[in-house]
Structures are given as structure tokens and as C-alpha cells.
């Protein structure tokens, strides 16, 4: 197996926007191959948590470990420790992210979207990048759309391209930030199917989602967040069937 215990770990993560505290003491440890779904009411800090893992948000204080190595340590908005730039870049590349609003590059075709970062960041040759891109695009079932611009695709197709784009960087962890929330209901299924396939292949995944069915079926663990805190954390069966936290109970009652 791997020579580390946790592929991703956060300790005492805090984040505030001005006086508003969005994350309060978030601790989470993820093992390789685990699929973790984060659920909770809106404004709970789920997205912020995901975004602070790959540095899209600056945490106020706390520690982030990747493969047991201290990646970032901040206290009161000041950086105490930070990995060397090269190591930092390598660690960031371990995480691929899929956004709620896809964020595809509109001026690039499907193929180019999936190729560009491979060439620019991974420094691959164009042929190698193209080969991998075609392979991955096939996996998300869009082989016939290689030279199409994103504006000509449906939301579900766009999100599948976005997943392919992240996968092409060959990350070890995939972060999904409400990947189906912006989709029409009939398009949700195709995206979830791709994600299920990924989970089956053993990809480590952190998924912020409102799709409780997906969480129950695919997740190894489900985390319930509210008010910037993790209030309950358990197997899907336990958490959905026997929630203990009061807020979790009322939340689940409202969505199920």
C-alpha cells in the first residue's frame, strides 16, 4: 500500500471573511481511495472548505497536510509554514477540481480544454497531451465532440468535459464543488454516472453535493457541515438512517 497514512488531512481550519466566520475548527482526514461526500445547508462553509484545500481561498489559520506532509500552516492570517514553491506546485497538482459552473475555457475546443494545462503545466508534448486527452474524453463519453466549442454543449456535457480536464492532470484527489447544482434535472444523471465510474476505479474524491442518493450509494463516509463546523461524520447508512446531531436531523428531514 502507500507509505503514508492520510492522503489529505486538515487540522483546526479556520476561515473568516472580515468578522464573519465561515469555517470553525474543521478537522478531516482522508485516506487514499476514499469517497467522502460533504452535505449540509447552504452557507455551511462546504464550498469554502473545498476551495481552501487547493488555495483558492486563503485560510485564516490551521494546517493542511498532503500525504502526511505539512503543506500549509497559518495562524491569524499569517503564514507560519509553507512548502517550497516546487513542492507546493506538485502538491496542488495532486488535487483536481470540478466547479459548480463548469468554468470551461470558452475560447478553446473540448480537446484544447483538456490539453492545455497538460502542455503548459505538466510540460508534456502536444502529441502526448492529445493522446491522453482523447482517451479521457472517451471515458466521459464525448469522443464525438472533440472539436466543438463549449458553448455548443449542454450543461451536462460541459461538466463532463470539466471532469475530463481535471482528470487529464492525473490528480490523486478529485474535489467536486456541487458539480450538479447548476444542471437541469434531466442532465444530472450523466454527470453522476461519470463520477460513480471514477469512484469505482478507486479515485479519492471529496464531493460537496445535494444529491443524497449519490452520497448514500457511492460515499464511504458522509460529512455533515453546518455553521462552518463538521457536526457529524459517519458511514452513509448510519448518518442517513440514524443521525444524532439535531441540525443534521432537521436538515435530512427537509431534503429527504
Amino acid at each position: 500500500m502507500s507509505d503514508y497514512q492520510y492522503i489529505l488531512k486538515t487540522e483546526n481550519l479556520y476561515k473568516s471573511f472580515g468578522t464573519l466566520e465561515v469555517l470553525r475548527d474543521v478537522n478531516l482526514s482522508v485516506k487514499k481511495g476514499e469517497v467522502i461526500c460533504i452535505i449540509g445547508p447552504s452557507g455551511a462553509g462546504k464550498s469554502t472548505y473545498l476551495r481552501s484545500l487547493n488555495q483558492l481561498e486563503k485560510i485564516t489559520s490551521g494546517k493542511v497536510f498532503i500525504k502526511d506532509e505539512l503543506f500549509l500552516h497559518r495562524e491569524h492570517n499569517r503564514t507560519i509554514h509553507r512548502a517550497e514553491p516546487d513542492a507546493q506546485k506538485a502538491m496542488l497538482l495532486e488535487m483536481g477540481m470540478v466547479f459548480q459552473r463548469f468554468n470551461l475555457f470558452p475560447h478553446k475546443t473540448v480537446l484544447e480544454n483538456v490539453m492545455i494545462a497538460q502542455v503548459l503545466v505538466r510540460k508534456k508534448s502536444a502529441e502526448a497531451a492529445k493522446k491522453l486527452a482523447i482517451e479521457i474524453i472517451e471515458r466521459v463519453g464525448l469522443s464525438d465532440k472533440l472539436d466543438v466549442y463549449p458553448s455548443k454543449l449542454s450543461g451536462g456535457q460541459q461538466q463532463r468535459v470539466a471532469i475530463a480536464r481535471a482528470l487529464a492532470m492525473e490528480p490523486e484527489i478529485m474535489l467536486f464543488d456541487e458539480p450538479t447544482s447548476a444542471l437541469d434535472p434531466e442532465l444530472v444523471g450523466e454527470v453522476l454516472n461519470v463520477m460513480k465510474g471514477l469512484a469505482k476505479q478507486g479515485m479519492t474524491m471529496l464531493v460537496v453535493t445535494h444529491e443524497m442518493g449519490f452520497a448514500r450509494e457511492v460515499a464511504d463516509r458522509v460529512v455533515f457541515m453546518a455553521d462552518g463546523m463538521i457536526l457529524e461524520e459517519n458511514t452513509p447508512k448510519e448518518l442517513f438512517d440514524h443521525p444524532t446531531n439535531e441540525k443534521a436531523i432537521s436538515f435530512l428531514r427537509s431534503v429527504l
Binding site: 487547493n54 488555495q55 483558492l56 506546485k89 496542488l92 497538482l93 488535487m95 483536481g96 477540481m97 466547479f99 459552473r101 463548469f102 468554468n103 470551461l104 475555457f105 492545455i116 494545462a117 503548459l120 503545466v121 470539466a162 480536464r165 481535471a166 492532470m169
Partner: peptide, 15 residues
Amino acid sequence: GQNEAAKALGMGYGQ
């Protein structure tokens, strides 16, 4: 979102 997507893919500011 374009900015964030590029950052998440590991692109530098110049790229």
C-alpha cells in the same frame, strides 16, 4: 471562474 479554473489546473499567473 476562468481565473479559478486556471489556478486549479496549476497554471501560473503569466500562463
